[in-house]
Design a protein around this nucleic acid. Structure first.
Lengths: 222, 222
DNA sequence: GCAAAAGTGTTCCAGATACACCCATGT
DNA sequence: ACATGGGTGTATCTGGAACACTTTTGC
């Protein structure tokens, strides 16, 4: 087990599947690759880990460097290591997924990214490497986690209405939910609390605003 | 051991948390390290990945090389990459967990392992590296997965009684279950089927034997 | 006949589901 | 006044939990 030949050692990258909700659809952040391999193709943001950097820090750094996005919820997804997944050499990638609120985060291209863009998860362009697999795995994890954790609020700004929250669930689960049952359950769980504020939107009754009891935390429920 | 930190690329290892049920307790396979670092200490089986080897194959190979065990259920757990988790240099480890039926698997020490042994998961010796963290993560995953998958049969031989299966659940969940409810649920799920055979054990009624409908497969239920 | 594990049904409760109308606002 | 999304309660269904006795065997 000791002493691997150094030149044989695989390289390590992180790749990040950053989801958001825009235009009532689940969207994924992609970058257009400035360099080979797969130059000009769309790919997930990501890159090589630095020598003394924790993995999650590396993922956060790549997201910041390539897309100018920081401060989002980030969780390790799975590690992809097929020997031929990178045409250059053996590269093992620790995939993360991240969730961003819909508003306020405007990606800007930089570093290895020639451009950035949000793409509907249901209609992605061809992706570099095995990034389509990563997106699929991340979508499954996200949908599963909606059911047993408080992850949904990570898609919303600090204050939100129950209608907003219901849209998150409906979009990710891709089916309509009953409004009364949804509200009953959400309030019963007790992880969000009403503020004294309302939001006046359009020609209709204002919506009561809620906040997460533990913003930033994703708890397992039931 | 006094290897200077020269190489920039982190090294990749896999480590395996192999569980079994013995003496009505959840047990973990450990090896005693033959080499530095942590020489003489107990650790999980594992080691460096080979240049063209898929990650899961590497985990299976290490299990075979160090403990002589093969053919068990193996699933990726999580990747551990704290920069200081290996005192020699940066090493990132992709942890797997594995489940072995109670009978028939006798580990033999070889390779980097000076000895092997089963240890109760509730009473482990001090472990090398961050292997205690890996064991804890694996235990949580295993307990969670009992609830929503058919993973439990991986602990049993091809044919088993409903009593055997119940012991698996009770041991991992660490609480007694109601026999009638347990049987009702297991049979309702429909992932095991009765054979025409019984097992005569002691001074009591013989137990009907069952088999998994899809042995080797772990399905998500409900 | 007795010890020991296998096998078997019903009642009860809690949480999920189905479902329709009034409320507050802007135009 | 009307259009728009916000907000509310009840009846029903279903799956999980609680619970005790008979069966078959070896000694």
């Amino acid at each position: 087990m000791d002493r691997p030949v150094t030149s044989e050692a695989p390289a390590i990258t992180t790749d990040i599947v950053l989801f958001t909700l825009r235009a009532d659809a689940l969207q994924v952040l992609l970058i257009r690759r400035r360099n080979e391999p797969f130059k000009g193709m769309w790919a997930l943001p990501g890159g090589f880990i630095e020598p003394d950097e924790p993995l999650e820090d590396g993922a956060a750094r790549e997201l910041e460097e390539e897309a100018g996005i920081s401060g989002v919820y980030l969780e390790q997804l799975c590690t992809f290591g097929r020997p031929d997944r990178d045409p250059r050499r053996r590269v093992i990638s620790v995939a993360y997924y991240a969730l961003a609120p819909a508003d306020g985060l405007t990606p800007r291209a930089a570093s290895d990214a020639e451009a950035t863009g949000w793409f509907p998860a249901n209609d992605l362009p061809p992706l570099a490497f095995d990034h389509d697999e990563m997106v699929n795995t991340a979508r499954e994890r996200l949908a599963a986690k909606l059911g047993y954790s408080t992850i949904a609020v990570q898609f919303l700004p600090e204050r939100f209405s129950l209608g907003d929250l219901q849209v998150v669930y409906e979009t990710i689960l891709n089916r309509p939910l009953d409004k009364r049952n949804f509200r009953k359950r959400m309030l019963a769980i007790g992880l969000i609390e009403a503020t004294r504020d309302e939001r006046r939107n359009g020609n209709h009754r204002p919506a009561r605003l809620y906040t997460a009891r533990n913003p930033g935390e994703v708890e397992i429920i039931k």
